[in-house]
Write a protein that binds this DNA or RNA. Structure first.
Lengths: 343, 343
DNA sequence: CTGAAAGCGCTTACAG
DNA sequence: CTGAAAGCGCTTACAG
């Protein structure tokens, strides 16, 4: 199993009898700048092409401190929302000549810290992070050490960090307004027990809209354990439906929505006749359900691409430390699950 | 935005007035081998800890040629099957002190080639690849250059390459046998138009079992465009159901199954009364469908973990070039979609 | 037991 | 216009 040696800068230089300096300059497109002769430039490029040379990025990195590697920390790469994000980031990164290293935190700040350390060791040029509860200090430290960081999906309002995420207040506001239009009043909400912005904002959008519409007395929020949501979802739904006689439920994440659907199927609750439902993030489950599920749609493409753009910008201009805040508007996709009760 | 300098080997060495050599040896756990004094060893370790030293992997890589980076090439990281694979690989890799860089080929061999080049440049120690049509030569070249490679999900029978995948022949065999037991005879199959082993084997399992059971005349296989499957799926189902009067359909991938369900919903075909269905890979769509979908379940955990194990083994023992072939048995999860027609 | 030195493959001031 | 040399942070023969 011979391990073939790749052609190095030196090989190219030797092959045409010049110095590595010259080759390096030419291949980095700095011929003009260094006023290298046109024919020499051509000779070098030809030789490099001939020998199928491609620079060793590891060496280049050691020298220049850049790897063209982006560290992506999500909570779980196998969650459909985050795997979509990962795919879009991959594509956009590729266009900009970057590659992605990923890691999953499972909503755990210790894992986040570990991942940051590991990825820093790999020499990533910057991070795109889905922050989780308790990760604020770690990320702050990372940011303050001068490493380019962009948050995605969630952000820290008090911190001077760039981010790209959904207008989460608007998301639940749209959901509530739609349900009210359809004649529902007793509308409940399921959300994770979390202090992250995405959760707080979705709760805020629900609460403020309910109040504005004079439905304060119907405000019911159930908080779900984020790492083991299933039992909490079942308990919450049981309570809301049987005790609170809720007519409609808004689920604030994809996972919560799906757990909710399982519960309702098990309890033989018909949607929307027994209970109206609004889910989060479009997916095949919603569309293929017997009663297709109305949901808040996140423009993932825009959110994820913006994150990459901001990050690369930061990497390239490490001096200026401007804070970019991208907030993308949600869309409500209306299907059958939230339509007016048949009377 | 000060970019703090990380503490280097040299910093540690200077802080206690010894050479970098010594520090390197100790920190790499080679004190015994080089017979370094016990107290010296302790002093060095203490200093390193004190200064919060962690080695610069880029430098170590340039020197030693190892990055502890695994290149993962799937067809699409946002496909639920592959994002699950990615997550399991991530976890197993982490246990073994590796990190994952990923890329999506979209079933395109040029993309695969590009990804291999890019990841090679990043210095990955080895690859886990989902190969696609036309990628055989590229991967062969990679393998022969001495880079550790393990295929996953699919393999090249004629090539001396390690792989981890499902027993695909068995997968469709189980599906066909179950349908026959339930009284179906006119059983059709939808598969991708592809020469990859996973597809060919799934077709093989179907065909051979149908023949063995004396149902040769009911063999109907429809080949679906892999990059744009939707129109083909619709056409195929129309033909099979209306022209061939098929009673049951086996979908050989997750994506095909879901497209099939959309079609049947649109056509108001009831499952299993109008048509029985067996899907591939378990997921929430199947379980939450009005008639939960019988499906072939791949033990993804085993498949993906084996791939990592084999790869790391190869990376560590680059001399011996044994071929590991892991073939995991599928399981048929029986739900309502394939039960005997109500008479 | 310990250190000086070379070298991994690059880039970039510095000379000429 | 072009090259010799230093240096990024490590590891590892080689000396002593």
């Amino acid at each position: 199993m011979r391990k073939e040696k790749r052609t190095s800068l030196k090989d190219v230089a030797n092959s045409i009898g010049v110095s590595t300096t010259l080759v390096s300059i030419v291949l980095n497109g700095k011929s003009e700048q260094y006023r290298i002769g046109e024919d020499m430039t051509k000779r070098v490029i030809a030789a490099a092409q001939e020998m199928n040379y491609s620079p060793n990025l590891v060496a280049r990195n050691l020298r220049g401190g850049k790897t063209q590697l982006i560290g992506l920390i999500v909570t779980d790469i196998s969650n459909p929302f985050f795997s979509s994000v990962a795919r879009i980031i991959e594509n956009r990164a590729k266009e900009l000549k970057y590659t992605v290293v990923y890691g999953s935190s499972d909503e755990n700040s210790n894992n986040t810290k570990q991942l940051i350390d590991v990825l820093l060791n790999k020499g990533v040029d910057g991070f795109i992070i889905v922050p989780c509860d308790g990760s604020q200090d770690i990320i702050k430290e990372l940011h303050e050490s001068g490493t380019p960081v962009v948050l995605i999906d969630r952000y820290f309002p008090e911190m001077d960090l760039s981010f790209s995420c959904l207008n989460n207040v608007k998301a639940t506001e749209l959901a509530v307004r739609h349900l009210i239009e359809q004649g529902y009043k007793n509308i409940s909400l399921l959300a994770y027990k979390s202090q992250m912005s995405n959760v707080l904002d979705r709760i805020e959008g629900y609460e403020s809209t309910m109040k504005l519409e004079g439905l304060s007395k119907f405000i019911n929020i159930k908080y779900i354990n984020i790492t083991n949501p299933k039992p909490d979802v079942n308990k919450a739904l049981e309570f809301l439906i049987n005790k609170r006689k809720t007519e409609a439920i808004i689920f604030t994440t994809n996972t919560l929505s799906i757990l909710g659907l399982y519960y309702m199927n098990n309890m033989n609750l018909r949607i929307p006749d027994d209970i109206a439902v609004i889910g989060f993030d479009g997916n095949d489950v919603f569309d293929l359900f017997y009663s297709p599920i109305t949901h808040v749609e996140q423009p993932v493409m825009q959110i994820a691409q913006a994150a990459v753009n901001i990050l690369i910008e930061k990497i390239k201009n490490s001096e200026q430390a401007t804070r970019s805040m991208v907030i993308i508007e949600p869309e409500l996709v209306i299907k059958e699950s939230s339509l007016r009760k048949s009377i």
